[in-house]
Design a binder for these strands. Structure first.
Lengths: 335, 335
DNA sequence: TTGAAAGCGCTACCAA
DNA sequence: TTGGTAGCGCTTTCAA
């Protein structure tokens, strides 16, 4: 069933049918419109998105590239993007970049070949030159989530990560901790870098010496938190607390401590970042930073769609979200 | 940059260029082929998937509809589907049906309008008539995951859920439990139904009386496990163990028990189903059933692609995977 | 308000 | 081995 069939049945031209399926307000009489709508329903006609795409060079699709679908951080983000998109009549193609540049590139090509109308991008690492060039060349609206890009025309939505980590560390300090371990994510990433800054600044502002032996770079997965804590524990650093750059690593660190029968928070305090579901289900419940991740997803989708539809106010810059400290049971007050 | 541009630059016809981008083995001399390939690279030409789609009525896309991306059960499934698809040159459109028929329908339309070549489908509930009709009418290859459909031409991949639950309950019985609570998923679903059967059969085979007050129907999320356990606890049933139809609900049940200071497994044993990551991170670590979910995803993708490419052996029926009991710390042996 | 027709970028068939 | 070209299902411009 094509537009031509409907046109023939309705005894009108395809142009007229096209006008009604595209909801053009003028150019077709109410009577004709109603009749055609009826036929469309009756014959269950669905216009080919592919043919429309070819004719218009547009689609109602937005592509969402994320680093790893296995990471619980993304789920509410995806929901947020999807809910917003769906409400506005857009569909989502979700791509798991798998933290691989090759895979990201392949997805970017795929999205372009399908004339997607916009791309929302995320990665654990800073965006690489080749990838960025691909994006810039394709000239589809692009928003980056969870990192700040200094690229003209590219909007970003992210958390104030420096502030977040600063608050978290300040909390630890307020609880009496001075020797604070730090397990970071990959350091070549905007959000990690900012969190690192927050850590350093909090220590500095409290006149606490920075000790490189307390700092470990890891990779945002449970296993790496586990390994990181093991290494930290081997170094004789006299630390009383460890801050992890995400909850997953904090949970890994927790496993490491449990394995060694080190009591949390009795002998070691621990904090995470993200407030994933798991963080309140482990024992002890993890103190962490909540990101309004669902809202961030929605905002990203909103920006993309407004851009696509030419509705984005020219004054719009980036959107920075505010962190929220969630105090639970994994930190002990020490003298 | 279109095929026409390349053809002009190369001084050949578009037909020839088409032959080389489609890797047609014959019809192009090696020399011409090499030259065109060079040009394509040089000008960074990407054929329009949309135009190809229109011309061929096909795409290299397979659609994956899942019930809820928030459920950790799906992540490895998605990875499995994706890895297999990617290796074979297909791309994935991931759709979160959100357990809503309306949303599923809308995604199905979307996928059809984009000429996807195959659809992999999952849902917590049994597939509804309208949805099934949509699928059947569209005549794209269709495989159902995690449930068994008796529809001609539709292949299914799923776990032997009855056997799995039977083993789990038998294990509980072997550990001395007789009064065993059961928190099910939505009962109008193939996998849940099978698990229910397994529960009943295990009790029966061991001459244990079935008590309806021990059984609660819930909805596969943490909160429902929590509520379910609350209700079970209010009924004076003298139960010593509870089996949940997934880990998420078991974890919710665990929260309920902890809240009431009921020791696990000291005073109440608990088992889950799925072996999601979380199940080994909670305290106590959860005894559960592992599904080879990544492999199930791969298999589903393999079937779909083989079907698309006409390579599926006509003898192929459904693929049933074997469960694996994972014994951890949440069950106590009683006399 | 309506229709005719060109064109979107490809594929595939038929001829050369 | 190559090229010409109709056609895929739609949108959009121009004319009626």
């Amino acid at each position: 069933m094509t537009i031509k069939d409907i046109a023939e049945i309705a005894n009108v031209s395809v142009a007229t049918v096209s006008r009604v399926i595209n909801n053009k307000s003028k150019g077709v009489s109410d009577e004709t419109r109603k009749r055609i709508l009826g036929l469309i329903k009756q014959y269950n006609y669905q216009p080919s998105a592919v043919a429309r795409g070819l004719a218009t060079k547009k689609s109602k699709i937005i592509g969402l590239i994320i680093a790893d679908i296995t990471n619980p951080f993304y789920h509410r983000l995806v929901k947020g993007v999807e809910d917003e998109a769906h409400e506005k009549g857009y569909n989502l193609i979700l791509c798991d970049g798998n933290n691989s540049e090759e895979k990201e590139a392949s997805y970017l090509d795929f999205l372009n070949e399908h004339y997607v109308s916009g791309i929302i991008y995320n990665n654990f690492h800073n965006i690489s030159k080749p990838i960025l060039n691909k994006v810039l060349n394709s000239s589809v609206p692009f928003v980056s989530i969870d990192s700040r890009l200094d690229v003209p025309g590219c909007k970003c939505v992210y958390l104030d990560n420096e502030k977040a980590m600063y608050e978290l560390i300040q909390y630890l300090i307020d609880m009496g901790h001075k020797r604070i371990g730090f397990i970071t994510g990959p350091i070549d990433s905007y959000s990690t870098e900012e969190r690192y800054k927050g850590y350093l600044k909090a220590l500095k502002d409290n006149q606490i010496e920075i000790d490189g032996r307390l700092i470990i770079e890891a990779d945002y997965v449970i296993q790496e938190g586990f390994n990181g804590m093991n290494i930290l524990l081997e170094r004789d650093t006299n630390m009383s607390a460890v801050a992890c750059c995400n909850d997953l690593m904090a949970i890994g660190a927790m496993e490491s401590l449990k394995e060694k029968n080190i009591k949390i928070p009795g002998e070691m305090s621990l904090v995470g970042f993200d407030n994933i579901d798991m963080s309140r289900l482990v024992t002890p419940k993890l103190t962490t930073i909540a990101q309004p991740i669902y809202e961030m997803g929605r905002e990203a989708a909103k920006i993309i769609i407004d851009t696509i539809e030419g509705k984005l106010e020219s004054s719009y810059t980036n959107k920075v979200f505010v962190p929220n400290l969630i105090i639970r049971d994994s930190v002990k007050k020490i003298k």
